[in-house]
Amino acid sequence: MNEPVPRILLERYSANERTIHWIVAVLFVIAALSGLALFHPSLFALSALFGGGTWTRILHPFAGVVMTVAFALLAAAVAKDNVMRAADWQWLRRIRQVLSGREGELPEVGRYNAGQKLLFFVMVISLAGLLVTGIVIWRRYFSDAFPIGAVRLASLAHAFFAFVLILGIIVHVYAAIWVRGSIRAMTRGHVTAGWAFKHHRAWFREKIGHAASPGTRSD
């Protein structure tokens, strides 16, 4: 078994997609840390990262709005690959096999697996919710235009959507760490053919169907 291991690379994210992803990611970290500082007193110390409580309060909503706009661009780019299909529900029913890494027992996966697709919808819904409720509780510019009951409901809902989004991102980041070779898709733009073959077989096929030609890099 000493035959050399071939290293064929497949493009997964373009430079533009990577850029927008990392803009969203950086803004998420800013919005999440500043939001958590205002959420629980035990985390108020995080406000020191932003120059104090007042700056935290000022920056948080702007970071949130820009993040949401950037996310909308990213979501538009990947939406077509995130439509749930029959095989996806089958995949979800076998979540035990997924979590123990027994991918041979799962239906073939396209560009995104069912978990990624669900996460996509969780992010779309929670970010839309955060945007709407965030505007209602943005006291400086908008809150006076809303009845107090709406502001109270929006305050609670904003915390709820943020909680859901943060849990989603924890899953997202962990999955990227757990499934080795995933992170390079977002840093370098490509994955190895073996990675695609193992984790996203249907996408792999589609990719090599019209790419196993001069376009494919191998180094």
């Binding site: 035959e3 291991v5 071939p6 290293r7 064929i8 979590l99 123990s100 890494g101 991918e103 962990y174 760490i177 757990w178 499934v179 080795r180 070779g181 190895t192 053919a193 073996g194 990675w195 695609a196 073959f197 193992k198 984790h199 792999f204 096929r205 090599i208 169907g209 196993a212 030609s213 494919t216």
Partner: peptide
């Protein structure tokens, strides 16, 4: 904990070889 118990989900050399064969056939 999941990482500690299950370990990383790695792509093996065999996966790369199989993938390469598929790429070759397709080419």
């Amino acid at each position: 904990l999941h990482y500690i118990r299950v370990g990383p989900n790695e792509t093996t050399d065999d996966d790369e070889r199989e993938a390469a064969r598929a790429v070759g056939a397709s080419a």
